[in-house]
Nucleic acid binder design. Structure first.
Lengths: 215, 215
DNA sequence: TCACATGGTAATCCACCGCTTACTAAAAGC
DNA sequence: GCTTTTAGTAAGCGGTGGATTACCATGTGA
């Protein structure tokens, strides 16, 4: 048996990842992890491979993050499309798909946030912030670099990505999506709204630079 | 001293509401509540007035809900305005303002949700669902009852209200808003987007009923 | 003044759970 | 075949925290 990668450690970590994701940090007992990995609960097998519950949790979090971190390349690589609505549809579906895999992370953030403030900051920097940056890049790209003040692009990204994220969050918390909107219709409306907005924003191509608070 | 409304019960409940809102159910100890209300911690004063920690929590939740439940009359009453952008601005600002007061409720929902599934359902029915209904009413009203299929209206409400809710949620979780968008710019962009959408949707007034998935 | 209800306190009970220690069986090294 | 390391188990320690019990101080009515 190889040193360090003792096999059972992975077994325990698998169980830990699953249970932490389902129940959160607090509600997952060390004995549960042992039992779920096939060992006798509260017997100490866990502590042969992890020095503390927290260490296992940080390992679980690392796995979640690396599971999800390849998002930009996955969806972003598909992006330059001719049809604007198709492009938006890819973004919406891709993001919603990603957010399914991120659900465990969200549960952690919402529940155990103030137990590990450093981890929250890490997740934000590694994933959330990156998502918004991606969405901002899309808007500046599509609007044209000149006609897009930073404030507005940030706000647009917050609305666009925020509404998608919120869809999955409501699902996670209440068991059904916001306004009980079915996913296909939700994506359709999202695409409609942004297609409409981009069309109008890029229509004033020739001039009208500061035409942003019309009556 | 009056029977039943023993004064100290209110005192304890005040403390409980505050601490539950800040720290959540689990992290708030009975002794903390007693201490925060001016009694000696872990001494039993709490149990003179509440039969259990859970009972106090349910009382705290009732207070939060009734604190926030008058929202529809507050913002909805201001609503029929001539200027469409002004109308949207009132909705956005009013909702964001409401969501500040709802922050404690959100913290509870995110953290202690699966400890009290019945309470989550209650909150959803009494508050969240009502909010979406309100937003849906706005869209059906503005779009015209005939040209607004239910699916689409639900999706629009989910996007519009969801993006606002998400703004406050990110603030609560990470300490700063999505994409670091400042609130004024966020409201401005939100109003822009929906004004644009409503304009286009109501422009095809005379005909073009099923013009909803154009290339 | 005495009986008694009210309301706060101290001390304690008990269940839970993270973590440790002592032990045992089996695999690895010589 | 002997020792040494590795890996799992049983038992238990120690701290936490919800809840209970016994107690006492005060205010009220007969």
């Amino acid at each position: 048996m190889a040193r360090g990668t003792s096999g059972t450690r992975e077994q325990l970590l698998d169980a830990a990842v699953e249970l932490f994701g389902e129940r959160g940090y607090r509600a997952t007992k060390v004995g549960d992890i042992e039992a779920h990995a096939g060992f006798s609960p509260r017997a100490g097998a866990f502590y042969r491979h992890f020095s503390s519950k927290e260490e296992a949790f940080r390992a679980a979090l690392d796995r979640w993050i690396s599971d999800v971190a390849d998002f930009p390349s996955t969806v972003g690589a598909l992006l330059p499309l001719d049809d604007r609505r198709a492009e938006l549809t890819v973004i919406a579906r891709g993001t919603l798909q990603l957010l399914v895999r991120q659900r465990q992370l969200f549960r952690f953030l919402a529940r155990d946030s103030d137990e590990f403030p450093d981890l929250v900051a890490q997740v934000h920097d590694d994933l959330v912030g990156r998502g918004y940056t991606q969405m901002m890049a899309f808007f500046t790209w599509r609007l044209g670099r000149d006609r897009a003040p930073d404030d507005q692009v940030r706000a647009l990204a917050a609305i666009a990505l925020g509404s998608l994220a919120h869809y999955r969050q409501d699902e996670a918390i209440y068991g059904h999506p916001p306004a009980d909107a079915n996913e296909a219709a939700f994506v359709g409306a999202w695409v409609d709204v942004w297609a409409c907005w981009l069309e109008k924003a890029t229509a004033s191509e020739a001039g009208l630079e500061s035409r942003r608070s019309t009556t």
